[in-house]
């Protein structure tokens, strides 16, 4: 929110406070509020004039009003629908943003993941096991840091994903008669030994 928006909301609140505190504005009540909110002196003055005018004219209004305009309400309802749509979209975007914050692996293309794995010195099987929570025990901080930097997210987010409940790939479920479960987890050391990394690369992680 920029300062102009903040100022507008503040003014909105001040005007509501004024209306709620005063039955009919006069010099004293206006003075009180102008002293309290000198930054809105002009707005309070204009507002008071409008308020007095509306009260005066409606007090003396004896004419019959011809209120049969469905168009006014239709237009307002149209604005309402637009606002609902806008609010719905904002919320959906926020939700999407939150979800992507929770798991930066989601929505990341396989080629990109492969590239990140290579740059961090692991293969895609280790990466898959890490992101699916299939590795228990200690995971090198250097590796977690590398992921955090690669995805530009806090280290904590990566640690939470790696230590979260094990996930089974959706594609695997069709082979099972019952809901599949991850029975065993492996340590990072075991994952490295079972990976397709070369001996030198394995040695680097194991030492």
């Amino acid at each position: 929110m920029n300062s102009a928006q903040h100022n507008e909301i503040k003014l909105h609140d001040v005007l509501h406070e004024f209306v709620m505190a005063v039955e009919r504005p006069d010099a004293n009540s206006l003075e009180e509020f102008v002293k309290k909110y000198p930054q809105f002196s002009a707005e309070l003055t204009n507002f008071t004039a409008e308020w007095l005018l509306q009260d005066l004219l409606s007090e003396n209004d004896t004419s019959e009003k011809n209120v049969a305009s469905g168009a006014l309400i239709s237009k307002a309802m149209s604005r309402l629908q637009n606002k609902l749509y806008e609010v719905g979209r904002t919320e959906a975007n926020r939700e999407q943003e939150t979800n992507s914050n929770v798991n930066p692996f989601e929505g990341c293309q396989p080629a990109e993941l492969k590239k990140i794995a290579r740059s961090l010195g692991i293969d895609t099987t280790i990466m898959a096991k890490l992101k699916n929570g299939r590795i228990e025990g200690e995971i090198p901080t250097k590796l977690c840091d590398g992921f955090a930097k690669a995805f530009d997210v806090p280290l904590q987010v990566i640690k939470e994903i790696f230590s979260g409940p094990a996930i089974i790939q959706a594609q695997a479920s069709f082979k099972s008669h019952a809901k599949p479960e991850v029975v065993t987890k492996e340590t990072f050391e075991e994952a490295v030994r079972r990976s397709t990394l070369g001996d030198d690369e394995k040695e680097k992680w194991l030492n």
């Binding site: 909105h12 005007l15 509501h16 004024f18 209306v19 709620m20 707005e43 204009n46 507002f47 004039a49 409008e50 308020w51 509306q54």
Partner: peptide, 17 residues
């Protein structure tokens, strides 16, 4: 009623200006 009065006056002063 007060809140609506406030809204009415806010919009009217905006248009006056």
């Amino acid at each position: 009623n007060d809140a609506f009065k406030c809204l009415r006056c806010e919009v009217c002063t905006y248009y006056q200006r």
